[in-house]
């Protein structure tokens, strides 16, 4: 078991992070807005973590402590080789707030666009952010920022932050889908005109959904930067956005469980195939196919998934039992 966790500790954490990234794409989708801006906010969050932990509160090897200085004045000191978890949470807050502000600024004009044009605008945002980070010295150019300090002794330690965060965000989305705002989102998704006619403020709700996704992506970026120990402009690119979209579409885009399961399963799949190849006693040809052809098989499974599960693996009618009972009562109350 120890070997299992040593081997897959970082994978487990990355899987859960992928689930949250899928969730961050799912949130705007809930209001019918297909946006690929999540990778941009993810990259932003990563840079926030990288800059704070290596530049603002750098490790002082002489004092064996992380020291936060403002000019010559010492604001705070955290001794020990491990990066303080409290600062990690501060980074998450900073990244969340920054992402929210940027998302509102970006969302107000961008969400006037619809469908494919919004998609293009968000892709452009990701590209612009990438070029900006390549040019700035603060972000380390193409090499990026490395030696980001570790808040936990082992990779699996990140689970202490990631698991609660995933549960929290899943619970948040679960509740969201059942309150007025969430229903407004669904109404916008199903028919914008009708929703507007019902008195739903379109701009407000669209920007809100977009911002919630952005905040989540930014927070995930913070954890990700620490867990991979380095951050650069190759993180959170357009390609990554497409991958997250695949998580949502294969997982299922009509219930919050879809992106979570999709993110976890699809992210793990190539590594599971790698693991399968290492099973002793497997014929050599099969082992080679699993190891070297794992990305081909991954692609194949994606294609088969879209053909046989066009609505995603997890569909709301999996849980029809409960919703059928619940819905009429809610309607009566309103």
């Amino acid at each position: 078991m120890a070997v299992f966790f040593a081997t897959y500790g970082s994978l487990i954490v990355a899987m859960l992070l992928a689930a949250m990234l899928a969730l961050s794409l799912y949130l705007p989708l809930l209001a019918g807005q297909l946006s690929l801006a999540s990778p941009g906010f993810y990259a932003l969050g990563g840079y926030v973590a990288a800059i704070i932990s290596t530049r603002v509160v750098p490790f002082d090897s002489g004092a064996q402590a992380y020291i936060w200085r403002m000019g010559t004045h010492e604001v705070a000191r955290f001794s020990g080789p491990l990066y303080p978890v409290s600062l990690l949470i501060v980074e998450m807050l900073v990244a969340g707030v920054l992402s929210a502000v940027l998302a509102i600024v970006l969302g107000l004009p961008a969400l006037r666009l619809r469908g494919i044009y919004l998609l293009l605008a968000t892709i452009a945002f990701v590209q612009i952010l990438q070029v900006v980070t390549q040019v700035l010295d603060l972000t380390g150019g193409a090499i990026g920022i490395f030696n980001i300090p570790q808040p936990f002794a082992s990779q699996l330690g990140y689970a202490w932050v990631v698991v609660p965060l995933l549960l929290l965000s899943a619970g948040f989305v679960y509740r969201l889908e059942r309150i007025r705002i969430g229903r407004a989102f669904t109404a916008i998704r199903e028919d914008e005109l009708a929703a507007a006619a019902m008195g739903i403020n379109l701009a407000y709700h669209k920007v809100l959904a977009f911002t919630m996704g952005a905040v989540l992506a930014g927070i995930v970026g913070v954890i990700s930067a620490h867990s991979i120990n380095t951050w650069n402009s190759r993180q959170g690119t357009f390609d990554a956005g497409i991958t997250y979209l695949a998580f949502v579409l294969i997982g299922g885009s009509r219930t919050f469980l879809g992106p979570i399961i999709g993110g976890i399963v699809l992210y793990a799949l190539p590594e599971v195939l790698r693991g399968l190849a290492a099973i002793p006693g497997l014929p050599l040809a099969l082992a080679q196919l699993l190891k070297d052809g794992r990305l081909i098989m991954y692609g194949l499974l994606l294609v088969l998934g879209t053909i046989f599960f066009p609505q995603g693996l997890i569909r709301p009618n999996l849980f029809r039992h409960r919703t059928v009972e619940a819905t009429p009562r809610k309607i009566e109350q309103q």
Binding site: A6, L11, I228, G275, A278
Partner: peptide, 16 residues
């Protein structure tokens, strides 16, 4: 990518 490198290293170190 970076995660791929981490996973490959972990497999080599712990499994192989």
């Amino acid at each position: 990518d970076e995660n791929g490198a981490i996973n490959a290293f972990n497999a080599l170190i712990n499994q192989s």
